[in-house]
Amino acid sequence: MSDFNVKYVAHLARLSLTAEEEQKFGAQLGQVLGYIEKLKEVDVSQVEPTAHAVPLVNVTRPDVVRPSLPNEDALRNAPLKSNGLFVVPKIVE
């Protein structure tokens, strides 16, 4: 756990934290990670992972055009919009 760096992981998650949050979350999550260590007791060498518990595989549907959310409905919660588009900060100079 000594290599658990809250600041670095928060950056990966695109999450800005205050100095106080960094310190508090670091301590609290250190405790949680310590608890999680108990999984190392289990012999999983012969066990397949379970991603989900649904008795289904490869659910598909016919590849045909169908109605989707109208443009104005898709945009109605946008923080900033213009000409039927989302407005975002400049990415390319």
Binding site: V6, A13, R14, E21, K24, F25, Q28, L29
Partner: peptide, 19 residues
């Protein structure tokens, strides 16, 4: 992104996203 998520999420959500 970082500022939006830092301001918009509460402490438990932040903890779980980090974990």
């Amino acid at each position: 992104y970082s500022k939006t998520r830092g301001a918009g999420f509460g402490p438990e959500v932040k903890r779980r996203i980090i974990l």
